[in-house]
Design a protein around this nucleic acid. Structure first.
Lengths: 243, 243
DNA sequence: TGGGACCTTGCGGGTTCCCGCAGAAAAGAT
DNA sequence: ATCTTTTCTGCGGGAACCCGCAAGGTCCCA
């Protein structure tokens, strides 16, 4: 068994390397890649099916890399080892994990033992391991207490990208009014909606822009999510005939 | 001489610790804090005037911490040791460094030697050290090729927070029309302006929201900048009498 | 088979945004 | 002191946004 590390911080990389050797004596080789691109290439060339990777790398982020890796070989086992449990990341990951895949998500703040345990669980015992904090995030994200529907998330991204109502309607195959409905719904959930009576900060906020701000502050959105969305968008735009 | 480390990643912390001991044999003590809050407290209690800190920590970010530390003791020497050279960070730092202060900004990707050299330069020779990449950022940011005025940056933040034109006018003591002028100017600089003829993506983008998106993608804005801005905003709102 | 919950769509209108035009005011330059 | 350049400001109007109201649609459950 060989393990591939994809992580851009050299310190973390060597730490991981040691941890893997210690936790998995049956492993006969550890490879390292320092960004998503070379990681993908190595995974393809060497047919690695055991990967540990960071999300948030400068060159090409972990989610992108994982997506293409899983697309080529869905049985690959991936342990995500990340600093953050931002909703944007958690959601991003759970959107790309193939049905039945074995994977893990542990935070860098977790203890040594925890990491080693996760390594064994995933790579040896074929069992998923998701940190409790991350799982909490998932619950909140998928359950509905303070949770966002796919539709709501979608429209949040669309306004974060700066699309107009009309463009969103076109993109999502809806009428303009429906788009506005979803927006209203989003505003309510984000707590930026102003129910007419409230003279408090009335008129101070542009709801559309405010919603994006709040989403960022709550880490519903982050840089890499935006980047992905922007890439999707420009692909769609290119596909769009001149109206 | 004692050195205080403020850094939330334990690996990086211990690496820093070693580097400091190696580079500064004359130093007789290294202290560690794992977030901005305890860092500030330690700095105050122990009167540390030699600090190495990360920007981007979860509890309280480096810029906040540095601001209060420098407010209390402007002669403190601070070396910022960060992963990123985002314009938002660079600008954030240069906004708070007191006149004549000795400080440094080196990237975590820099070599061992580079870090040690920076430590000696700043703490022993009282000389500022700013990584070339960061300096490049500063140039771009302060010079005006693709650079943003303070005014433009200010209004960018205001719309990113979700304020309306009217609210911005109030906050910045301008007429609404002036705010809109500045917005137009910003749109031009961000390349989102649509000069009437362009039927290309005409109407696809909401300029206001698009500007924020582009700013995020270009790292003119980032999470911690938004957080700071949000804090400033709510302070201002509290100070604002009911209109 | 008839509610109930939810989503979609059209209509209408009040508000905000976007911005060309043009005059006043401020800041520099010669 | 005068000229230029930049910034601020009001006016006006077209477009986009925000949203209450109300009429279908769909899906599920009893």
């Amino acid at each position: 068994m060989k393990v591939l590390i994809i992580e851009d911080d050299p310190l973390h990389r060597s730490y991981l390397n040691e941890a893997i050797r210690a936790a998995l004596p049956e492993c006969d080789g550890v490879l390292e890649a320092e960004n998503g691109n070379t990681g993908e290439r190595l995974a393809r060339d060497l047919r690695s099916s055991h990967i540990v990777m960071d999300l948030q790398m400068s060159q090409r982020n972990g989610i992108e890399a994982a997506r293409t890796i899983w697309k080529e070989r869905p049985e690959t086992r991936i342990l995500f080892w990340s600093n953050y449990s931002d909703e944007a990341y958690v959601r991003g990951v759970s959107r790309i994990v193939p049905a039945g895949a074995v994977y893990g998500y542990v935070l860098k703040s977790a203890s040594d033992d925890r990491l080693k345990l996760a390594l064994r669980s995933i790579f040896i015992e074929s069992q998923c391991v998701i940190d409790r904090e991350v799982r909490g995030m998932q619950q909140k994200s998928l359950g509905n207490v303070n949770g966002f529907t796919e539709a709501e998330y979608e429209i949040l991204i669309d306004i974060a990208l700066g699309l107009t109502d009309r463009a969103i309607a076109q993109r999502r195959n809806l009428s303009v009014r429906s788009v506005q409905n979803r927006l209203q719904q989003l505003y309510v959930k984000l707590g930026v909606y102003q129910p007419l009576g409230g003279q408090d900060d009335d008129g101070r906020f542009n709801l559309r822009a405010r919603a994006v701000a709040v989403a960022f502050l709550r880490k519903l959105l982050n840089h890499s999510a935006l980047e992905r969305a922007e890439a999707d968008l420009s692909a769609w735009l290119a596909r769009q005939p001149r109206d």
